[in-house]
Design a protein around this nucleic acid. Structure first.
Length: 257
DNA sequence: ATGGCAATGTTTCATTGA
């Protein structure tokens, strides 16, 4: 079972690249973030032609999430948003796919430490922790994948001194992310030895990608039983290359059957 | 080989992302 998550930064702009990537990579489940599409405009037919069933919740211009599952896999209990957290912004999709509870998240960016949007990000993380506590009780086989907008450790940052205390690296955000690990979830990427300076996001500006000035802010977290089954994890840096890339690369976690 | 912001809509600039 191959799980994946990818912030595509507009599904309309990224559709050809996504279809090629699905064909080449063949994940079983893929969580997409920042689709930036109203549901009526979702490319259901193109996704179906690629062999995937999609569940999605979108909006114009901002946010928007989708969960793609390989045709033939059983899909149950599809849900959107977080219970008890009213939010116009489309940031959460959940479904049970082939017996695994997959939750796709697009955590708010937070803009600047101390801003209103930063406070929203921290409230959002609290709601996510509460939701995941309940979900873990119901579904022992659980994975959470997406754009968490937090670089958990200094080794996830190209220049920790430059980023110290900044949004995505602040103590509060790292504590909020760490609270998810406190629920028993494991960062699948760190279950294995990894090359140094492996990142999932690079700014479009200042040659950040060719200089590998990035952050690792996209993650797949696994419940203990799934962490036991995890045999590999990686970030597909190649998907950030070429014409019209997203600023994020896909992240992957592979589970044995 | 990678490439010096990109995508969207309110469009000819403002807003947001991270």
């Amino acid at each position: 079972m191959l799980l994946a998550a990818w912030n595509v930064n507009s599904l309309s702009m990224r559709l050809p690249r996504l279809l090629a990537w699905l064909e080449a990579t063949k994940p079983d489940v893929l969580c997409l973030q920042e689709t930036k599409l109203e549901d009526a405009r979702f490319p259901t037919l193109d996704i179906a032609s690629a062999g995937y069933v999609a569940h999605f919740a979108g909006q114009k211009t901002y946010n928007g999430v989708a969960l793609l599952a390989r045709e033939g896999l059983a899909i149950d209990d599809v849900a959107f948003g977080m219970p008890g957290f009213d939010d116009e912004q489309k940031r959460v999709v959940a479904a049970t796919v082939g017996g695994i509870r997959m939750i796709g998240v697009y955590v708010p960016n937070g803009q600047v430490v101390g801003s209103d949007k930063f406070a929203y990000k921290l409230r959002w993380y609290e709601a996510l922790a509460a939701m995941l506590r309940d979900e873990l009780a119901r579904y022992p086989m659980l994975a959470v994948g997406g754009d968490f907008n937090v670089a958990p450790e200094d080794c996830d940052v190209h220049d920790p001194a430059l980023w110290m205390g900044k949004v995505m690296c602040s103590q509060q955000e790292r504590a909020a992310f760490c609270a998810l690990l406190g629920l028993g979830l494991k960062d699948s990427f760190r279950l294995f030895a990894q090359p140094e300076s492996t990142f999932s996001w690079w700014d479009y500006r200042m040659l950040a990608f060719p200089k590998n000035h990035g952050l690792r802010i996209d993650h797949i977290l696994l419940s203990p039983p799934l962490a036991e089954r995890c045999i590999a994890s990686r970030i597909d840096r190649a998907a950030r290359k070429g014409q019209k890339p997203s600023d994020h690369a896909p992240v992957l976690a592979e589970l044995r059957d």
